[in-house]
Each structure stands twice: as structure tokens, then as C-alpha cells.
Computed example of a mutant assay.
Amino acid sequence: MPKRYSTVRGREFGAGMRTAIAHSGMTARQIAAVMDWQEAKVSDMLTGRGGVTLMEVAMFLSVCRIPGAMRDHLLGLFPLLDVQGLWQLHGEHSPIWSRTAHAHVDVAKTLVSWDSHAIPLLLRTPEHMRAILAASPLVPANELDDRLRAFEELLQLRGSVHNCAFYLRESALRSQVGSLEEHLSQLHRIKHLAGEAGITIKVVPQAVGAPPGMAGPFTLLKFKEAAYAPMVWTETENSSLFNEDPSSVKGIETVVRGLDAVSLNPKESTRLITLLLAEEE
């Protein structure tokens, strides 16, 4: 029986199955006909709502003729589709393109992002991001342009989110990343975004030495689909965590309220950015 909800693991599985279908050169309807399935059964599988057995998944993948590593990954995910949350270990360095992050930002209704020491990811300009990537010993030089393209695609997806709130520290605004020209461009970009409908930017002033959220950056996502539970996305140098546990989400919501209590309001934040620009220009 298909579930009325889906987990991030289930959606990761569904995305992989869609890739398998594309690899086959057939449509979902054609594969359903080969399997003697109703199309609704394929749809439930692709949305991570279940309705299929492990044997049926293996048969479906055999029809798609996908590479063995991809097959093993999907078959390994399948028994754990009901487990909330997904911790992705990337090895030495993160992938160029995060299918999971892109897919969930794309369908988010609201987004709240905080970074304890830097400009939040989805506020960065491509030039700012290039400087950060170039400084990392874990980013191969020959991947820099591809990673920037993936980042710019993520920024485009963020543009479709109805309501975004960003919290950042004054120290992050003052820290020059890249050239002075790139630094000023980043400040101008944040000031411009602060004036856009659906975007709220609040700055934690320098005087707040230890604000809530010192443990590190996070992005809290809530979704248009009722079947998608709220989720907290966090990144490290070489791992990603997508956490749907209700208690964990509630904890992050408490951190957000704490940040809100110590931050400048949006007008004060914009005024501060204007003053910083005047100091630098």
C-alpha cells in the first residue's frame, strides 16, 4: 500500500529511479507495460511512496539496464525508505552537484538559512563562491568551473522559493573574501536582495559575541507538498545531512527564534550594510 508521506531517502530513491528510466531510453509508461504494471504504481515508486517490493525494484532496474554501481545504490536504499533523514558521506570531497540539495530547494515553500561565520551559501555571489572554492584544498582545480555552474543553478532554484530568511553575522559582512571589488559586489548584492519581495535579511551585530547557532550553518526547508516533512540541511567539507526528525527540526526552530531575538531588524540590517559600503568605497 503506498504511503501518504515520503522521506528524503524515498525521494532520493525516486530520483535515482527516474535516472534509471532515462538511461533505459524508454518512457515510464513503456516500462510499466513491460512490467505489466499500472502507471500509478510507477508513479508511487518515483515519488518515494512505496507500493513495490525489493524483487519488483530489482526487476524494474534489470529492464532499465543501468550500471551495477547505480543498481546496488538503489537496491541498498530501498529497505530504508521509511527511515527519516539521510547522511551522505562523500569521501575525500563533496560531489560537484548535489542532487538531493537541488531537488529539495526546488520544491521548498520557505527557507531559513544561517551561517555562524560566513555569508550564507544562498546569499553568495558567484565571485564570492569562486574565491571560497579556490581556497579549499578539497576542491580539485579542474572542477572549479563545474562547481560554480552547479552553484549558480542552486541560486536559480532559490529564486522560486516563496519566502526566504537569512541570518548572518556582521563579522561575515566585514570579512573580505576575494578582491576588494568582489567584496563590495557581495555587499551590494545582499543589500539588493534585502529589498526584494519574499526575502528577509537580518544581521547579528558584532556586539553579540556568542549568538545562538554557534555550532554551525544550517538551512531549514519547508515544502509545498504536504507529504514532505520539514527538513534541516547542513553541509560539512565532505558530508551532507538532511534531517527530518521532528524533534531535531523543532530544535532548529528554537535556534531561529533565538537568532531573531538578537538580530537587527531588516531596516537596521540594510542600514548597517549601507554604512559598511560607505566605509569601504
Results as ranks from 00 to 15, higher is better:
141 A>H: 12
169 R>E: 11
177 V>A: 15
120 P>Y: 05
180 L>Y: 10
134 A>G: 12
109 K>L: 14
162 H>P: 04
183 H>K: 15
146 D>S: 13
201 I>Q: 00
204 V>W: 03
209 G>Y: 05
203 V>Y: 15
115 D>E: 00
118 A>H: 05
148 L>G: 12
193 L>T: 03
198 G>Q: 07
137 P>W: 12
200 T>Y: 01
157 L>F: 10
172 A>N: 03
180 L>V: 14
162 H>N: 10
178 G>D: 08
165 A>N: 05
140 P>E: 08
112 V>Y: 01
189 R>W: 05
115 D>N: 02
112 V>P: 01
154 L>K: 09
171 S>P: 07
176 Q>K: 09
206 Q>P: 02
165 A>S: 10
116 S>C: 07
178 G>W: 02
112 V>T: 09
187 L>H: 02
192 H>D: 13
171 S>R: 06
171 S>N: 09
149 R>L: 14
116 S>K: 03
145 D>T: 08
205 P>C: 09
155 L>M: 14
198 G>E: 06
195 G>D: 11
153 E>I: 00
157 L>M: 11
133 L>R: 11
138 L>S: 04
122 L>K: 00
121 L>I: 10
113 S>F: 02
111 L>V: 01
161 V>R: 01
159 G>Q: 07
110 T>Y: 02
114 W>G: 02
148 L>C: 12
140 P>M: 08
134 A>S: 10
132 I>S: 10
166 F>K: 02
141 A>C: 05
136 S>D: 12
118 A>S: 12
122 L>R: 00
119 I>F: 08
182 E>S: 07
204 V>I: 09
192 H>R: 13
191 K>I: 00
204 V>F: 09
169 R>F: 07
211 P>L: 14
168 L>A: 02
191 K>H: 05
190 I>V: 08
126 P>I: 13
170 E>D: 03
159 G>T: 03
209 G>L: 10
204 V>K: 05
118 A>D: 13
170 E>I: 03
207 A>H: 15
135 A>L: 04
172 A>C: 02
145 D>P: 13
145 D>S: 10
115 D>I: 03
116 S>E: 07
175 S>F: 08
133 L>C: 00
192 H>C: 04
110 T>P: 03
210 A>K: 14
194 A>Y: 12
201 I>P: 00
134 A>W: 02
175 S>E: 08
146 D>T: 07
122 L>E: 01
137 P>T: 11
156 Q>T: 11
184 L>C: 13
190 I>D: 12
154 L>G: 11
211 P>C: 14
191 K>V: 04
188 H>T: 14
113 S>H: 06
201 I>Y: 01
145 D>K: 06
206 Q>N: 09
185 S>E: 13
121 L>M: 13
108 A>C: 02
119 I>M: 15
174 R>M: 11
127 E>G: 14
118 A>M: 12
200 T>F: 01
136 S>Y: 04
207 A>D: 10
144 L>C: 06
134 A>H: 08
